[in-house]
């Protein structure tokens, strides 16, 4: 039983890392008021570029960097439309997803079936990995998972306890007021959109270098959309994003575990639905009752222009 718990936990954490990284990125973007629904497209682009760079160079660091950067660059396209042109952010984000799907499916074809150049295997952390159960669950993972462990508190600290974080949150609440205070709204929004893309790109790199090495068409399988739901579930807080992502990973692990053991306590279809149901539940919970303590940034999705 304990053994089962250890491997369910291990698979749950492994399955949650991509969603977690993408969620962190999207939280940063949305905190500055930029809604980017292009996460799925950026993840795919990151996955493809990481796999391609891996095959071309065989260097894990370059491969991760290429995937991450590719996500960031694609996000800048959204930044241009959303910040500079002030178009509808929902449409621009959706376009980014469609663009990412189409472009990666087209450009990725020569890479299908080629042996992956880089495989980031699980690396047990000396000492920690030997802790019973906990060690198996958390400390026998891919190096990128460890990176995610570090990024969560950093991201939280950055948003809530630094001057830059304060500016980001202020821009997301009331861009005009921040502008009046002499802070460059455009620069902050571009920066945060870019950071959001980096998160999604890194998430894609995790999938194509670590989870199932090699490029496969539409390999993200909707995890980008889960990340967007998880931002709301986490009420725009990086620490709570861990809970959301782990929940998603846990459900992924459990749906197969139940079948494998032969007791389907909860139908797999229900388990698949659960992250979205819970997100809706959270949205309802934070929006009924007095105040909106856990609500999203007030200026989320609202373009800023000096002419008003």
């Amino acid at each position: 039983m304990i053994e089962d718990l250890a491997f369910i936990g291990q698979i749950a954490v492994k399955s949650s890392i991509a969603v977690l990284l993408a969620t962190l990125g999207e939280i940063v973007a949305e905190r500055s008021g930029i809604l980017n629904l292009g996460v799925e497209g950026m993840m795919l682009t990151g996955a493809l570029c990481a796999a391609a760079a891996g095959i071309a160079t065989g260097n894990p660091i370059l491969a991760v960097a290429a995937g991450t950067l590719a996500g960031g660059l694609l996000a800048l396209v959204h930044g241009f439309f959303a910040v500079t042109l002030r178009v509808n952010q929902v449409l621009s984000g959706l376009a980014l997803t469609l663009l990412g799907m189409g472009v990666t499916s087209f450009l990725g074809r020569p890479l299908i079936g080629i042996a992956p150049g880089v495989r980031l295997r699980a690396v047990p952390i000396p000492g920690l990995a030997d802790i019973p159960v906990i060690g198996d669950i958390f400390f026998r993972q891919s190096p990128l998972a460890y990176l995610a462990y570090v990024l969560v508190p950093l991201c939280w600290y950055w948003i809530f306890h630094t001057g830059t974080g304060l500016k980001i949150r202020a821009v997301g609440e009331d861009a005009a007021a921040v502008d009046a205070a002499g802070i460059d709204v455009f620069r902050i929004r571009y920066l945060c959109t870019f950071a959001g893309g980096l998160g999604a790109g890194l998430a894609g790199a995790y999938l194509s270098l670590s989870y199932t090495p090699g490029w496969k068409e539409s390999m993200t399988g909707g995890q980008g959309w889960v990340a967007i739901a998880m931002v709301i579930f986490a009420t725009w807080n990086p620490l709570r994003a861990v809970v959301g992502a782990f929940l998603f990973g846990g459900l992924t692990a459990l749906q197969f575990y139940f079948q494998a053991v032969g007791v389907e306590l909860v139908p797999a279809y229900v388990l698949k639905m659960l992250p979205y149901l819970l997100t809706i539940a959270v949205m309802i919970l934070v929006n009924v009752g007095p105040g909106r303590r856990f609500g999203g940034p007030a200026a989320l999705g609202v373009p800023f222009s000096r002419e008003g």
């Binding site: 089962d4 491997f7 291990q10 698979i11 492994k14 399955s15 999938l207 989870y211 199932t212 496969k216 390999m219 993200t220 399988g221 995890q223 992924t252 692990a253 197969f256 575990y257 079948q259 494998a260 053991v261 032969g262 797999a268």
Partner: peptide
């Protein structure tokens, strides 16, 4: 022979997860 359904013809991520679950079992 223990069977676990993917409920798809192809889904690389979940194929991997499922195979790993079976190995762990």
């Amino acid at each position: 022979n223990t069977i676990v359904w993917l409920k798809a013809w192809r889904d690389p991520i979940n194929e991997t997860t499922l195979a790993e679950t079976l190995v762990a079992r």
